[in-house]
Simulated assay, not measured.
Amino acid sequence: MSGFDNFWAVYSNLVLSLGINGLLALSIWLTLACGMLSMANAAFMGLGAYASSILTLNYGVPYPAAIVAGMALPALVAAIMGGPTLRLSGVYLAMATLAFGEVVRIAVLNTESLTGGALGLNGIPQLTQWWHVLLALVVTLLVLWRLRRSKVGRAFEAIKEDETAAGLMGIDVGRHKMLAFVLGAAIAGLAGTLNAHLTFFIGPGEYGFNRAVDILTMTILGGINGLTGPVLGGVILTILPEMLRGLGGFRLVVNGLVLVLIVLFLPKGIWDPMRFRQWFGRKGEAA
């Protein structure tokens, strides 16, 4: 038992980060499942982190209420900005949501009395426990699994394949896009809340362009054809840098090379159920 205690004392933050990054990957998977390339999830994560941290650090709000606030604020902001923004598509939507992330960063920097500005917030209560992360990940997976197999999930798939055809079939494209956008923002805010109360400190630099690209990479790397892929991608991109830490300055080079090779040879991601079915089918025929 002492061995496990030693392991947990050293690697507990890393283990919990696996679940948090899985939540982030699922948050952007939801928008990709509706055919939207949104890069705002890092900003939504930051909104959730700051909202919940300010409440617990400055006002002594109970953690469950802070979690709700950390999900509600990004969802509300997404609902407000979604009206004009979701009329865009493709790279234009990506550019608009990246610009939103920059607006959030500048707003945080210029509200120093509330957010700590460039110095960030320090001394955030460490309230996140392992079961918080596990429960959040399991509930999110169950909700998205149920959503994917519902009428709404089928509408998402239709919109992703052909937005115009989906509209002609009677699907309210705008409403479904808004739903995916708001739900994705709430999940990203949940991840931000859990992460902030795990690491003691948050700063505006943590939720910028680099984090947005990391979140997208997790999902693309794992695969967007199922819920397993994004979680797997989050696990890989969390563990890989730690496994390569012994390489020192070459760690990022090898990390990037591994990702490039995976994208080149597995363009649909690591987790591709169709590829597995074809592979097992060929093995069955050979037998």
Rank of each mutant, 00 (worst) to 15 (best):
A66Y: 07
G120T: 08
A287W: 15
L142F: 14
L216Y: 01
G256D: 02
I270S: 03
L244Y: 08
L240C: 06
G189C: 04
L147F: 10
A287N: 15
I106K: 10
A188G: 03
L190M: 07
F201C: 04
V263A: 09
T128F: 07
S52C: 06
L135W: 07
G153M: 10
V235L: 10
I124R: 09
F250Q: 10
V182M: 11
K177I: 08
V143Y: 04
R275V: 15
M178A: 12
G229W: 02
R277N: 13
L55Y: 08
G208Q: 07
A191H: 00
V108D: 05
R282M: 14
G120A: 09
A51V: 11
Y92C: 05
L259Q: 02
D272G: 11
L16Y: 05
A166E: 08
N110H: 15
T164G: 13
L168D: 10
F4K: 11
G90D: 07
E112R: 15
V15N: 07
S150H: 12
P230K: 00
V258Y: 04
G223R: 02
L198W: 04
V103M: 15
I187N: 00
K160H: 11
G90E: 05
T199Q: 13
M169T: 14
P64M: 08
L144W: 08
A25P: 03
G246K: 06
V231L: 04
V138N: 07
Y63M: 08
F44R: 01
A33R: 11
R211A: 05
L244A: 10
G226C: 07
Y207W: 10
L179F: 13
V10K: 12
T238S: 09
G248E: 09
K283T: 15
A94V: 03
I20H: 02
G189V: 02
P230R: 01
N41C: 04
F209G: 01
Q278F: 12
T217Q: 00
D172Y: 09
N255Y: 11
V182Y: 09
K160F: 04
L244E: 08
A136E: 03
A166R: 06
L24K: 00
P204N: 07
E285Y: 15
L24V: 03
G60S: 12
G101T: 03
S150F: 12
F276A: 15
W8M: 14
A79V: 06
P267L: 09
D5M: 11
Y63V: 06
M274V: 14
V263Q: 04
I54T: 10
R105M: 09
P64H: 07
T56P: 12
A75Y: 08
S12R: 13
L257F: 11
G222I: 01
K151Q: 12
A42I: 01
